[in-house]
Amino acid sequence: MRNDLISSALAVVVFTLLLGLAYPLVVTGLAQVAFPNEAGGSQLTRSASSAARGERAGEVVGSRLIGQDFRGRPRYFQSRPSATRHRADATFFNNLGPNSRALKDRFDANVARYVRREGVPASRVPADAVQFSASGVDPHISEDNAAIQARRVARVRGADLPRVRALVAEHTDGRGLGVLGEPGVNVLELNLALDQAGSR
């Protein structure tokens, strides 16, 4: 018993130093050298051309992996609805169950809003456009959803629809290795690209 206690105490110290400090700090160092952009959160900055309205070029505007809120701004593609209003520093799930009346009411409201905004019949509303993502900061929308929104974005911006569609295609992340997961359109990158294209 006494021997076990001594060995255990020594082991806690040794393995905490090794696994709790040396390991994560070495990995951090290597990551910062080899993949500084990814290790820091894949942050995007405003380019000179899109920083028109009094904003500084080079300023951080977000992360390509973290979705943002574009509600009330029809010139932008809209992210998926979020339980957290796209908070990236206090994430949580929505947690309403599959037979929840509150969930059904929210779905109804979201469908009505989408129909109003995009002018499509309710039967064509994509599932991802009206259901909360898991993280609350899903950076993607489905290709269907983007195709529908492209018309409205082009109209509001007075832009060419084919040009907008081309940008959508350019900012679509395909399935991993062609088969893993689902494809998705990166909303923040797409909207940044739209701003950039518009101010040229």
Binding site: N94, L103, P126, D128, Q131, F132, E182
Partner: peptide
């Protein structure tokens, strides 16, 4: 809503 249960799931 068509298209399966995406509530609480990520697009990717």
């Amino acid at each position: 809503i068509e298209g399966g249960n995406l509530e609480g799931k990520e697009t990717r």
